[in-house]
Design a protein around this nucleic acid. Structure first.
Lengths: 343, 343
DNA sequence: TTGAAAGCGCTAACAC
DNA sequence: GTGTTAGCGCTTTCAA
């Protein structure tokens, strides 16, 4: 296991001092072309790459940002990380990633170890509205941005989505198609962003003098979700349309409808949440609310970078717009006014 | 932006030397209980967490492993990283992740910057069979494990899947159902692991004296994939079953069938690749080849850890088994022997 | 058992 | 324009 070569090795090989090597590499001060050449040759020959950690220790930034998400197997978080990684890389930064496993306790623990790297900045998707680990970040005094989930209390830069508008758009869509008996599925209602989506839906229903739909919490296990939604479907006055408020809820709805042999959109229309390639490939392709994940990552980095560079602006909360992507899973209900309770 | 507290701050507050603080924290040498207590109190009060980078510099491992994958938006790689992260965390390690963007050039560049962290180990999914960046890793002398894609030449520890067996299982399944005219879709055939899957299929067909199916390369864009498969479907002698060799090819097949209004499995049976929750939720739920992603990550870390701990065993190539998960997308062909060319 | 001090690889301030 | 050196935060000798 050959020790990686150090700046000393390069200096020896090039016959210069380590200071000169550093100057060539960082370009802070002019160095004679001849020496430059010799240094660069030595660097190439040895495959030297400055030690990021050592370099940081002596005053330079390590150019690393820590990213903490609840769960990497959730495609939304994976896409978010992909976007953040692409963004930071453009500025020569690396990311170190951690997972809180959707547990507040682990969240704090993970954050601590992430902070032990003394990152230049931190991007977090808290696993619950309450985000006690925020204290750790503030104590460390590290620039940070909260993404996706934001409690009302926590004062920090944040990047979210206009959840109310997203919910409203989906509600308008199904109402305009003629649906009156609409159901809403969410993995949980404990998160503010999800409740906001629901509020958006309720707002539209109320504005049109319709009774707002009741939400169903389906959890995070497909069997359980299917079960819960199935009993719901069995009841009299089965809804003619479903709006899913999370990507997992979308799967639950689809699974429950399949189990009951109900056709989409013939028997029941479905509005999904998030937009993944599979939603375009399946039959019918899913009408869905698309979150601008890509842009969320970029936006989080923009804000974080400006903080890293010393910005002292007041906290901002960026709210990005979702699109409602119309595809084949929504249609007018079979009977003009839906399987209506007015029957 | 408060500077994070250092070992010195802790020492001052506890009224001991920094050496004692270090000994309390690392437990290398006995420390008087009273002093221990004072140190721990100071640590808690200051929220002190030792600087990983500085600690590594002075001889300790930093407990990081670098992970490089072609693309984080691919759910397979995302799941793999999730598994690796969970595994390494159990041993107190962190991961720093990079993406090669499926480009060999970027792969080398990314690997260099990842190596600049002097990680204890590296896990790589190369983006092509040729893996020139391997030279960088070897020169650095860092323990490493190659996952998923392995060229014949490169000598290193590797964790893969038994691709031949996986292909064979899918072939046997559709043949047993009565299909004779079978098509195979892959995003690309430039990767050895995918060619092995195909070889597995061909082997079974030949062993049963059937003409092996021709493969279609569909690329990585859904529109393009749909197009390519659609022309294929339009031809006389349309296949009665499709086997997809990658998760993306699965989507292409589904999309093409939908476009042509063909029912699954009534008109065409489909065997998908990889196993994600959506495959269980949609109608029909997909029969698919499940790669043991979870286990792949764990296994890669097991091997890597033993190398980090100094193991000098010869290189091993772990080959894990895939399952064929039977669900609703495969069935006997409409006419007993399929839309056969023997007609 | 504890403290003092060397030194890891690097950058930046200082000397020439 | 170049070399020398202090010192970042830490672990680990070496003395006491």
């Amino acid at each position: 296991m050959a020790r990686a070569s150090s700046i000393k090795d390069v200096a020896n090989r090039a016959g210069v001092s380590i200071g000169t090597v550093s100057n060539v590499l960082n370009g802070k001060r002019a160095v004679h072309p001849e020496l430059q050449k010799r240094v660069r040759e030595a660097v190439a020959a040895l495959g030297y790459e400055p030690d990021r950690a050592a370099s940081r220790l002596r005053g330079r930034s390590a150019r690393v940002v820590a990213v903490l998400v609840p769960d990497l197997t959730n495609p939304f978080f994976a896409s978010l990380i992909a976007s953040i990684e692409a963004s930071v890389r453009r500025d020569g930064y690396d990311i170190i990633v951690g997972t809180s496993n959707s547990s507040v306790a682990e969240e704090g623990a993970r954050l601590s170890t992430l902070l032990a790297w003394r990152p230049d900045g931190v991007v977090v998707v808290p696993c619950e509205d309450a985000f006690p680990a925020a204290a750790l970040i503030r104590r460390a005094g590290v620039p940070h941005v909260i993404v996706d989930r934001v409690s009302e209390l926590f004062e920090a830069d944040a990047v979210t989505v206009d959840n109310v508008a997203a919910g409203a758009a989906s509600a308008r869509h199904v109402i305009d198609l003629g649906h009156r008996n609409v159901a809403v599925a969410a993995s949980t209602l404990a998160l503010r962003n999800i409740r906001e989506r629901l509020a958006g839906i309720e707002g539209v229903f109320r504005a049109r003098d319709l009774r707002p739909p009741n939400p169903v919490e389906v959890g995070l296990d497909l069997e359980v979700a299917t079960e819960r939604l199935a009993t719901f479907l069995g009841e009299a006055g089965r809804p003619s349309a479903f709006i899913a408020l999370t990507n997992f809820a979308t799967l639950g709805v689809l699974s429950a409808l399949r189990r009951d042999g109900l056709g989409v959109p013939t028997d029941v229309s479905v509005v999904g949440f998030d937009d993944y390639v599979w939603m375009r490939a399946v039959s019918p392709p899913l009408t869905a609310i698309r979150q601008p994940v890509e842009e969320m990552g970029r936006s989080a980095w923009d804000r974080l970078r400006s903080r890293i560079e010393g910005s002292r602006d007041p906290f901002t909360q960026v709210k990005l717009d979702c699109d409602l992507v119309l595809r084949g899973s929504t249609a007018a209900p079979a009977s003009p006014l839906g399987a209506d309770r007015a029957a």
